[in-house]
Computed example of a mutant assay.
Amino acid sequence: MAERSKQTRAQAEVAFRKAQKAERDKDKSSAMQEYESGIEATRKKTARLKELRLAKEAEDAKAAAKGAAKKKKPAPKG
């Protein structure tokens, strides 16, 4: 009877280890997906911010060029 108890316990432990491994693999997979989606979100956000920055810089350059053209006055002749 003790032998059967040991065998049942060993089978239960094996089943438990398999269940733990399956759960770790599932957690690992979901963690990797979460990590990769975070990286993708960061790339998209960075690209969007870069576009906004470049647009603003171009707008500022136009405004500066326009302002410089207005400020230039012909030198008085004399």
Rank of each mutant, 00 (worst) to 15 (best):
K28S: 13
Y35W: 09
E23Q: 15
F16E: 07
P76T: 07
T8C: 06
K6R: 14
A10E: 14
V14D: 07
E59S: 09
Q7H: 12
L54C: 11
A65H: 13
K72H: 04
E3V: 05
L49P: 00
S37A: 15
R53N: 07
E34S: 13
A64Q: 13
A68M: 01
S30G: 01
E40S: 10
S37T: 13
A64K: 10
K72F: 08
S29D: 08
K6L: 12
E57D: 12
L52E: 13
A15Y: 02
A61M: 03
I39W: 06
E13T: 07
K28D: 05
M32H: 07
R17E: 11
A47T: 09
Q20A: 11
S5G: 06
L52C: 07
K26L: 06
R17H: 08
D60A: 12
E57T: 07
D27P: 00
A63T: 02
I39A: 09
K77D: 04
G38H: 05
A15C: 07
K50Y: 05
E13H: 06
R43Q: 09
D25I: 01
E59D: 13
E13M: 09
T42S: 15
E3F: 02
A65R: 07
R4G: 01
E34P: 00
Q20K: 03
P76W: 00
A19L: 06
K77F: 02
G78T: 09
K66S: 14
R24S: 11
K77I: 03
R24E: 05
K77G: 04
R48P: 00
L49Y: 02
K56P: 00
T46G: 04
P74D: 05
R17G: 01
R4Q: 12
E57A: 04
S5P: 00
D25H: 02
E23N: 08
L52P: 00
K26G: 02
K26F: 08
L54E: 14
K18T: 02
K44P: 00
R17V: 09
K28A: 15
A10D: 10
S30Q: 13
A22N: 09
A65L: 11
F16Q: 08
D60V: 02
A75Q: 11
A47K: 03
K6I: 09
A75Y: 07
A2I: 05
E34T: 15
I39D: 10
A61C: 04
Q33W: 02
T46C: 06
G38N: 06
K6Y: 05
A64E: 13
A58R: 05
